[in-house]
Design a protein around this nucleic acid. Sequence first.
RNA 1: GCCAGUGUGGCGGAAUUGGUAGACGCGCCAGACUCAAAAUCUGGUGUUGGUAACAUCGUGUCGGUUCAAGUCCGACCACUGGCACCA
Length: 950
Amino acid sequence: MYDYKKIERKWQEYWDSNKTFKAYENSDKEKYYVLIEFPYPSGSGLHIGHPRSYTALDSLARKRRMEGYNVLFPMGWDAFGLPAENYAIQNHIHPREAVKENVAIFKKQCQNLGISFDWDREISTTDPSYFKWTQWQFIKFFEHNLAYKTKKAINWCTACKVGLSNEEVEHGNCERCGGEIVRREKEQWMLSMKSYAEKLIEGLKDTDFIDRVKTAQINWIGKSEGAEITFDIADSNHKLKVYTTRPDTIYGVTFMVLSPEHPILNMVKDKITNYEEVVKYQEDASRKSEFERVELIKEKTGVKLEGIDAVNPLTNEKIQIWISDYVMMNYGTGAIMAVPAHDDRDYDFANKFGIPIVQVIAPFFSPEEDNQLKPDVKTDRRKTVIIALKHHDKDEYLCLNWKIKDWHTFVVGGKESNETIGETAVRELQEETGYKNIRIDKIFNFESHSSFYAAHKGVNRYQEAVYVLAKLEDEESNEIIAEEKDKHDLVWIKKDELGKFINIATYKYMVDLIVNGEKAYTGEGVMINSGILNDINNKEEAIITIINYLEEKGIGKKTTNYRLQDWVFSRQRFWGEPIPMIYCDECDWVPVPDEDLPVMLPEVATYDPTDNGESPLATMPEWYTVNCPKCGKTARRETDTMPNWAGSSWYWLRYMDPHNDQEFVSQAALNYWGMVNWYNGGMEHATRHLLYARFWHRFLYDIGLVPTPEPFTKRTAHGMVLGEDGSKISKSKGNGINPNDIIDAYSADALRTYELFMGDYEMDTAWSTNGLKGCKRFLDKLWRVKEKVKKSGEYSKKLESIINQTIKKVSNDIEQMKYNTAVSALMILLNEYEKQEYITDYDLRVLITLLNPFAPHITEEINELKELGKPLCDSPWPKYDELKTQEDTYELIIQVNGKVRGKITVRINIDEEEMKKQAVNHENAIKHIEGKEIIKIIVVPKKLVNIVVK
RNA sequence: GCCAGUGUGGCGGAAUUGGUAGACGCGCCAGACUCAAAAUCUGGUGUUGGUAACAUCGUGUCGGUUCAAGUCCGACCACUGGCACCA
């Protein structure tokens, strides 16, 4: 019906030759900077997901231009890194050539889509004029002591043969290839990102990032507050520092655990009598792959250091020291104080190795409603023993059903001062049940506290309850004395039903011990066995008290820790920016002087990675041998390259001034463009790219090179486009869709419209070719409806309100990324036009203007054919009149008791009384009111009337 | 285990933030045009009952608040993504 290929080509050429989308620095318009993540130009061309993000932000950019902004909407290529290199290796071409080919494909595809990029600002991270400045900025990090080289156990991908940062490891596997990760000691360049942890959290406050991005970043940074505490090693001058978030549990420390790599081991090895065992454990631990460590979480392993002990600084008791790989060297101090009673991991460890467990926090149960504490009554503190008696051959437990109150409990009794807990348990059971042969099975490590008014004794009772599990050996029993018999009945309750039967908190805790077994108590409660902390019933208060005490004594201090690690910045691959550093025996590490930048990659025969963990550059003495820039002696270039995240950590700055050969970006351009106004990208980059980029930018700000601390004002994220089958698109599944084929068969406008219409922009959505056809049909219909146009110079009276509504809706929806409902509103408007005998030039012009950001080609063509005015790209965005969005009538909903019983059309201006009158006289409403009393009538203006009847 | 997100027709998804649940699109059914098909147009389309008017149930499950709940509160279930021995 119309030649969309010709039309689209025509307008793409028009935009190109007119430089329609060029951004200017010397403009008196207000600036607006729109950014999408620049892609990795892989061999397979654009993914069907790319156009979703591109068209979305393209529609924003186009709308902003029409609103009168000077818009910067640039595009470039993130072309260093493994995929490009692997593609080159497979296809036996130089990565540089592979990039050139792929970029050409990507660029053509973007142009075919009609995205309004300013192509004059195109950049590529692999361009020497670009990576010169990446290297230059690396040297700035070095000069400010934020780049350093160190030997470190890193994540080594055995398949890619390359070291990875923490951010590049997923589920213990390589995020790129899924290969196995092992820990490997290597000399690595690092960037001190950890020292920016706080700034990276703080900076988020001034940004308008969507919450899920902020949360992901905050979680990744992983701030925690606690204390560092120093423990002495007995009979030595050595000390052990630990980090803990729970210094309040220090009296419960019964052992310490060091990471197997902890440096103190070497210092005290003479004292350790089983050092060979220690060394063996260290070796085993380092050989374990990341995968094994994750899989083996449940089973704790470790070695006790024989011959040395630590001293608990508060109790002065000697405690054992162990090494175990459940303690990481790279978090905190690499050593922990273990509190098995209140930490699951420490509990498992203590349980496995028979280490004592000392409870220091008791669960505290407040009084039930009917036995609240009484004022002016003395408090009687006593120890009680709660005993669960298990039947000798059934899975049932003996419970008490009290006669005086609705109490369901276990057997309970007070402990006399001259007996042990076990003796109390046996005595009480015999007295209350008559059974003679009872065995104590287990006295639990945990007690609970509670306080209540004991009516039968007339005192407030503070009760410390200990828990005992006993077993009945046989039925042999004595007569129960009458006094006990009168108090309660004895009942046997099945294990599964204990939870339902027992109805007092103190006893429910016993049920938990029986059903789930004993485990660490990680809840809150009252401090016990804890010296100065005893009786404090508030975690925060206990922590503050103990920290103050530790600080006073000089054995500890309040500390903050972060999960964020320094950025591993070395890669042992060919296709990356060479790290511009030279090692000289005399001068140590010396940066390449500015005038020698960029450090270029050499021509090599092969880019294959090496097995020994060195970059291919390390096999080229003719490349790496240089003279030291400082002393002139023979020196050696760094042969590692930068990670592919490097180039993308500042690219938005380069767009501001892409051809500058004097500076990475001019101050004038920085001051004009400022922050990116709106940056959209995938959720998968919320913790990688986005954190690196913010860190990098913040550093540049701190050394005065950029004017703002944060690079991006607003960050949003698009959902993924899934395959037609609803699963993730992947080469192996073969469920991919090629944008080229779609453009050929249905037009770029249809593809663009569908990408926005397919679903909620922020959520994943499955591709549907039928859905795409629907959007094509919509455009076809528009093409037909245009023939109804008649010159008039104003909107059709009939259409005025829907037109105003649509302008409002589309304008707001684009701002809120609700593209699907924006397209829907335009479909509704077009359907309305179609019903008309004719429409005016204004009617048509406003529709195609609103649709222009989504479907720019067909709308420009219609505009030109029908001679409706200037090209849309040079026209202003339509305005609406709030008053005119109103219709004269609306549909009034009539409800009876909240159920819709009728709908009537009424004038917009009728008052509440009239609404009520109409409602109660409505025929169907009357049926539902009849014989009932009207209690009240609720009126929601311009909406509904609800008649409440009884 | 922890964090985040999601759960609405046959499908993708709407619902002005407490006020008509299912907009719009797809699919499907029927009709018109056609020798026929495609394209296009018209009507229908959550469930059950009824020719219909209408009634009934209905937004993952259970409970609550309210004149009124997809929306708010409480408990849970399922799926997706991320993190995971982080002391």
